[in-house]
Each structure stands twice: as C-alpha cells, then as structure tokens.
Amino acid sequence: MPAHQFILNGRTVSVESPADLPLLWVLRDVLGVTGPKYGCGVGVCGACTSHLDGEAFRPCIHPVGDTTGRAVTTIEGLGAQGLHPVQEAWLEEDVAQCGFCQPGQIMAAVALLRRNAHPTDADIDAAMSDNVCRCGTYVRIRAAIQRAALLLRASAPTGGASLEGDPGTTGRP
C-alpha cells in the first residue's frame, strides 16, 4: 500500500492506505483526529469541513492520495497558539448547541474570512449555506462571523485578515 505524507496541523504525518481512501476516515480512524465529524459522508452537510492549504474542503469526499505534500488543518489545529479569533467570536456569541456541526462551521468561517475580510450578510449566506446546522444556530453563526471579522481586522495592522494561529498553512505562500 502506498504511503501518503502530508502536513496535519503543522506536523508531518505519513499514512499507508489506498490512495482513494477518503481523508475523513484517515483522520478519524487511523490518526485519531476526531474534530471533523461524519454527518453525511457525501459532501452535502459540511460537518467534516477542514482546510487543505488554507482553503475549506470536505475530507469525507477527498481522497487521501490527493493530500500528499499538502497542509491539512482540522479544528484541532486551528488555535494552536490559543483560540483563533473566529473561535473567540464563537464563544462570545455562544453559538453552539449540540455542537456537532460547529467544527465544520468554524473552519468554513475561517476560510471565508481569509478570502474576504469584510463579508456582508449576503457573502456569509453564500459561503456558509452548504454547512447544515440541524440545531438552527444560523443567527448566531452569522453574528459570530461579523464579530470575528472585526476581531481579525483589529488584529491585522494592514487591514487584511490574519492567518495567525493556523499552522496548517506553514510553508505555503
């Protein structure tokens, strides 16, 4: 079986498995990284949302073979140096109910804010509408993203969104 080497939350890992094994199961079953959740396994709910080279992606439909040499960040790797501003905002808005969707929601929100430091509600709707929250926390998610945008802008002197606290992007431009 081929070995696949990639950077997981800032550390290099190597996994022997078929190349087409969905990354979600590599993370959960092989590496014991359980932050990304199984909600559908077919890419429609967003519960597994994590980052690949800083972009949101869905490990449940992403083959491990395609991650070779790339940086995978899960919710566990997001706040390596304390909480990420998006997590801070999530606490302040008290977003979570059952919490099962929240790692995915947060990872999707971080990716959005990285692309767009000043999202409008419409931008948030567009970026977040493929992440289901069965508990209906959408109102607070929206508020938390707006709050996080403020926090990020305040912490980034140039006015751009900060990438700090995301070791998954180490080594990438």
Partner: peptide, 27 residues
C-alpha cells in the same frame, strides 16, 4: 450565561460516542 461546554465544542475536544477511544473498538 455562555455554555459551559462551548470551549470543548469549538476546539474539537467535545467527544460524541464515536469520538471515544475505546481500545480495539472496530468500525
């Protein structure tokens, strides 16, 4: 008052049944 388990949830530390690490438990 904010949820007492909020931090666990947002850091991925919250454990649901299948996140438990029971040695040898097979999928």
């Amino acid at each position: 008052t904010g949820r007492v388990d909020a931090r666990d949830i947002i850091t991925g530390a919250a454990r649901y049944a299948l996140d438990l690490d029971l040695p040898g438990a097979l999928p």
